[in-house]
Design a binder for these strands. Structure first.
Lengths: 208, 208
DNA sequence: TAGATTGTTAATCGATTAACAATC
DNA sequence: TAGATTGTTAATCGATTAACAATC
């Protein structure tokens, strides 16, 4: 099966598998069966095996899965076995929260620079990344081999900044603006729509 | 159909419908057909009609949907037609970003208080909400009719704080900690796993 | 009335689960 | 070898799309 044919549902589960395997690894667990993992994760063993077999046979009959091997293979599938250079467009609380989150760096996502329109913020530092004026962003992307932009600015200018970044060569946008970005089809957008998430919470509280 | 039987897929689309209707409303659009909305949102007209009819018939043959009416009905379905009192456990950058986000208040989510373990933060204010010591949280929940807790603390103490909040009467948890919380079945948890979202972005960049 | 568009049923498509042969 | 557990096929279940009668 071609990688591009794998359903979003399967892909969305991979990071969760990765998280559980990391935890097992930290606890010194060497091997695990799909049945055992199923109990911990509250998903069916069948689904775990089915999901993994989209990408190859990582287990062994009668044994199960080697935790470290499977962990590393999923890292490769997710593309987190190598470094990704990131910039953050928008250096408000949310942008700074992302910059300060150490775990991303552990996974190979390195924040190389931050940008903002507010002159008061220019020059400050966040975990080693300097805050620069928005006008310098395009050149920075080109000069520093930046692949990913986290977009944490208000929606009014989100599409404009996205267009600028795409022109400068950005390949992926982690979008926190409350809107659907318009980008060329070869640019990947991952949305984090916090207000929609909060409304889902509200719905479920309303309904149960 | 019972509300509880409506699939997660449908529910997750409701806030996005709401967002588009709000935009139409702001632009003074009075009526819209499923076909027209379909073009804007890039989902099928059939799906829009099917989704909405889980909750009732909001349209009119030959006319379409009245934007304001549908907007308000979806607000009711989502439970955002009334105020929800929120607290934020964890007053780091992420907690403060949430507190400062004005749009949540517009939707009826009012931050009544913030909490942290760090003595340096105690007493500060964020948009009118005071930062208090974590030990005072349980009493605050009881005394101020708090329904929702945003959880923006490291995963090491996330479950402990969650347990405490649930005991004090919290009904919904907006969980930003990178773990699966253990709570009674009548407490609703909505997860925002940022690192998983970032890995999904990486996967898609790796694959396309 | 004629045209437009919904609400709803039926058909299709895809994802999950069950079952079991393969094999370590 | 016997037991365990995978990889994979087949069966089931659910979600999406298509079609069209109802009706504004």
């Amino acid at each position: 099966m071609d990688r591009n044919d794998i359903s979003l549902a399967v892909v969305k589960r991979l990071p969760r598998y990765y998280r559980y395997l990391e935890e097992l690894l930290d606890n010194g667990v060497e091997r695990i069966s799909s049945g055992d993992l199923s109990n911990r994760m509250k998903v069916s063993a069948s689904q775990i095996r089915q999901d993994l077999n989209h990408f190859g046979g990582f287990g062994q009959q009668g044994y199960g899965y080697n935790v470290e091997y499977l962990h590393d293979e999923i890292a490769k599938i997710l593309g987190i076995d190598h470094v990704h250079n990131i910039i953050i467009a928008g250096s408000g609380n949310l942008g700074r929260a992302i910059a300060n989150y150490a775990n991303f760096e552990k996974r190979g996502f390195v924040v190389k620079g931050m940008f903002d329109c507010n002159p008061e913020l220019i020059g400050r530092e966040c975990r080693g990344a300097k805050i620069m004026p928005m006008e310098e962003m395009a050149d920075f992307i080109r000069d520093n081999n930046i692949e990913i932009m986290a977009l944490t600015i208000p929606k009014t200018s989100a599409n404009e900044v996205a267009r600028m970044a795409v022109e400068a060569g950005i390949k992926g946008i982690w979008n926190f603006a409350h809107m659907d970005l318009i980008v060329p089809s070869d640019v990947v957008v991952e949305n984090v729509h916090l207000s929609e998430s909060l409304m889902t919470l509200s719905y479920n509280m309303n309904t149960r």
